[in-house]
Design a binder for these strands. Structure first.
Length: 437
RNA sequence: GGGCUCGUAGUGUAGUGGUCUAACACGCCUCCCUGUCACGGAGGAGAUCGCCGGUUCAAAUCCGGUCGAGCCCGCCA
């Protein structure tokens, strides 16, 4: 007999079917036993009256792999309105080890309990509440892909093992590469720009590695980044509009598609406008300093509290939890950024903030070969190094005006669901202290 | 790198000098229970209170060290 999934059992009412899955919960009521079996589609209830069938499960723990043949009965008292009767139970994989962590009740996500959560991740992810986080994440990544494919982007995969040179800024992991020194890519930045010369519009969703000694709720050492790069832009606005439209689309659809899951995870209500408000860095400093009395006008970047503050401000003043902060000062720029032609003290660079956290950074690139070389030298970079010379080759052979974004998928998922720590949105997070599981 | 905070059964917590021979809930084991769905009831096992040292008549509790963890800042996405 062919296996039927829990969610499809309703089309087999009155028929004998086979379900296969994991023992999720047992409730023994004397002459009557309810067991829940979990498969990839959900959970189905089975009613067992035959004592010898119940005995097959004696001593077996949650997680035991079962195959159960039974009659599908409509029953208003059953969760989901139906259940299996007169089951024949076959134990496929017996489990005798007690589950180290709860599997049918929500797990603690308090910060002081996260270590336990991740230490028991292998089993904890089977918890239905934990699964919801990663089903939503999967759905969001799919929405991103669908949106970008519809805009004629090509998905690419760039190397993660790269030559010593990097884009600067973040600390990198160094490793031995057949006697040479290599690093783990901190972003696909240089390669995605090279690929503009091939496909105009490219994106990549993949891991990037940061060796930052940061222990906060928003940092991990292995980050899933969405990198987008688009050529033949008429202005920096083209980039901000594309990324803004994408985020609006993904958030709206996610809140629609996963309404039940988000509600049960206590996600906040989504407050969004289709065009995100924009503030310059200087304006944020000004508004923040005036409101809090803390003078930030000399800061080159936003301080973490300003990121929270401006999102709250935009939420209450503009009815939008996502904002663009534009016109970052040249002091904070990277060598490949394009300096604002109308104001050389600022860069064509905006950050996208959502619910108090930087989600994406969206700059336009410098395409003038001589200017780029100059900016590299100013940043202390040798253009002859192998990590850069091939990058520069792409410019010598023609790259159009382009820009894009580096977009933190983990942070985006975290904030969409309203989790408190980026690690909660990652299956097996990597941080200063954790390399396993 | 700097600062602050926290380590008590498998899990989450209470207990902050003596009544702790360490309590409660979930989970686990035994028994009862025919409509449970956070099932209910009775009983039971499970903790050298992170580790080492010190103070004290007396330490889970105070002090020092150490290991582990969390949060914030810096840095960074």
């Amino acid at each position: 007999m062919e296996r039927v999934l829990a969610k499809d059992a309703k089309s087999s009412v009155g028929k004998n079917i086979v379900v296969k899955g994991w023992l999720h919960k047992k409730r023994l009521l004397g002459g009557l036993t309810f067991i829940n079996v979990r498969d990839r589609s959900g959970v189905i209830q089975i009613v067992v009256e035959d004592k010898s069938e119940v005995e097959k499960l004696r001593g077996l723990q949650i997680g035991t792999v079962l195959s159960i043949t039974g009659n599908v009965i409509e029953e208003t008292r059953a969760p989901g309105g139906l259940e299996l009767h007169d089951p024949k139970i076959e134990v496929l994989v017996p489990v005798t080890h007690e589950s180290p962590i709860e599997i049918d009740k929500p797990l603690s996500h308090k910060s002081e309990n996260l270590d336990t959560l991740f230490e028991n991740r292998v089993i904890g992810l089977r918890n239905l509440q934990e699964q919801k986080i990663f089903k939503i994440r999967s759905g969001m990544v799919r929405l991103i892909r669908d949106f970008l494919y519809a805009q004629d982007f090509v998905e690419i995969h760039t190397p993660k093992l790269v030559a010593g040179a990097t884009e600067g800024g973040a600390e990198v992991f160094k490793l031995d590469y057949f006697g040479k020194e290599a690093t783990l890519a901190q972003s696909p930045q240089l390669y995605k720009q090279i690929m503009v010369g091939v496909f105009e519009r490219v994106f990549e969703i993949g891991p990037t590695f940061r060796a930052e000694l940061s222990a906060t709720t928003r940092h991990v050492s292995e980050v899933t980044m969405l990198d987008i790069e688009m050529g033949f832009i008429d202005s920096h606005d083209d980039v901000l509009n594309l990324v803004g439209d994408m985020v609006f689309h993904v958030l709206s659809k996610t809140y629609e598609t996963f309404a039940d899951e988000l509600k049960s995870l206590n996600a906040p209500e989504l407050i969004l406008k289709d065009k995100f408000p924009r503030y310059t860095v200087a304006k944020v400093h000004e508004l923040y300093s005036k409101d809090t009395g803390q003078d930030t006008t000399d800061e080159k970047d936003l301080i973490p509290d300003e990121e929270k503050w401006i999102c709250d401000y935009a939420k209450s003043k503009e009815g939008c939890e996502a904002v663009y902060v534009t016109h970052f000062p040249v002091e904070a720029m990277k060598f490949y950024h394009r300096i604002n032609p109308d104001d050389p003290t600022t860069v064509m660079w905006a950050d996208l903030l959502f619910r108090g956290l930087e989600i994406a950074t969206c700059p336009e690139r410098e395409i003038d070969y001589q200017k780029l070389i100059g900016q590299m030298k100013k940043a202390g970079i040798n253009p002859e190094e192998p990590g850069y010379k091939y990058y520069l080759q792409a410019f010598r052979h023609g790259l159009p005006a382009h820009g894009g974004c580096g977009f933190g998928v983990d942070r985006f998922v975290e904030k969409t669901i309203g989790l408190g720590n980026i690690k909660e949105a990652i299956l097996f997070p990597r941080d200063l202290n954790r390399l396993a599981p």
